[in-house]
């Protein structure tokens, strides 16, 4: 279950800004072609993010709305908005990954981990593999 923190004041807590998690993200099955043809990426994400998965992280955005711990759904939005080079429709569809993309969280099928709702932890490894190679 995810918890929600409501910020009613305009001041963004400094502790929240400082708190971040480091992730390893890898693309396979040709999906890396959408991400500058780089397979492995190391990312640093804030540990608390907007519930609407807005990726323009600044005090203004966070202070005005609901927040949640950074999860895989947010990670997908972050990848789309910051790393994706072309054709976002080939990566995401309806707030989740496009059908045909397999996601592994720490080498485990994300369907066992709660899919997009999985709360990311420091040093997690998330892999996105396109299964649409044909064959």
């Amino acid at each position: 279950m995810s918890f929600r923190i409501m910020w009613s004041n305009q001041t963004f807590p400094p502790t929240l800004i400082m708190s971040s998690i480091t992730l390893r993200v890898e693309f396979g099955g040709g999906l890396e072609l959408l991400f500058s043809n780089i397979k492995q990426h190391k990312l640093t994400l804030p540990s608390i993010v907007p519930s609407n998965n807005g990726t323009k992280l600044n005090g203004e955005v966070l202070s005005g709305g609901e927040t949640k711990p950074a999860d895989v759904e947010y990670l997908m939005h972050h990848l789309r908005d910051n790393l994706l080079q072309e054709r976002p429709e080939l990566f995401m569809e309806d707030n989740t990954v496009r059908p045909g993309i397999l996601v592994l969280i720490n080498d485990t099928d994300w369907e066992l981990e709660g899919e997009g709702e999985y709360a990311l932890k420091d040093n997690d490894e998330v892999v996105f593999i396109s299964t649409l190679h044909g064959g």
Binding site: G29, L102, V127, I129, H133, G134
Partner: peptide, 19 residues
């Protein structure tokens, strides 16, 4: 399924040339 194929290729480090 295609998902099983994909995971097998990933876990066994198979190089998929692609179409």
């Amino acid at each position: 399924t295609m998902k099983e194929c994909s995971l097998w290729a990933w876990w066994n480090d198979l190089y998929v040339i692609g179409k």
